[in-house]
């Protein structure tokens, strides 16, 4: 029973692991691109959390159909929210990459420690 309960939270375990992996990459890597990759992984974990929480077992898309009664719907709201959050994540990533390009133009490197040494 205990094990099943743990497995029932499988998605949330994966969420926690991905979240930590991403955060670790952001903190430990000195390469700016790798930092941004870490940031993206970190954000994807949150997408997984939102998608998981809206899933209702046996639920379908929330479309009212004629003649079908007692239809179970998955909650569409978190999906809408996370769609917005994905857009936000993509724009952050794009801006981050643009800044890395500029850093590379100005410093000739994208290693954090070399940038610190250069100034």
């Amino acid at each position: 029973m205990k094990l099943l309960e743990l497995l029932g939270y499988f998605n949330y375990w994966v969420f926690a692991i991905i979240l930590t992996v991403g955060l670790y990459a952001v903190i430990s890597k000195t390469n700016l691109i790798k930092k941004l990759i870490g940031l993206s992984i970190f954000q994807s974990a949150v997408f997984l959390m939102y998608i998981t929480m809206d899933k209702v077992e046996g639920g379908t898309a929330p479309v009212i159909q004629e003649g079908v009664k007692d239809q179970i719907f998955s909650n569409p709201l978190p999906q809408v929210l996370i769609l917005t959050a994905i857009v936000v994540g993509v724009s952050t990533l794009a801006l981050g990459l643009a800044i890395v390009v500029r850093i590379n133009e100005c410093y000739g490197t994208i290693e954090e420690d070399e940038i610190l040494d250069a100034d």
């Binding site: 959390m49 978190p78 952050t92 850093i103 100005c106």
Partner: peptide
């Protein structure tokens, strides 16, 4: 040019902050 590493650091930390907030809001919504 030092504005660029400064803003990169801000971007990383700001995004982590906002994502933490998003996780919190998700949990409360749940």
């Amino acid at each position: 040019r030092r504005a660029l590493p400064a803003v990169f650091k801000y971007l990383i930390m700001g995004t982590i902050g906002a994502t933490f907030y998003l996780i919190g809001v998700g949990l409360i919504y749940m």
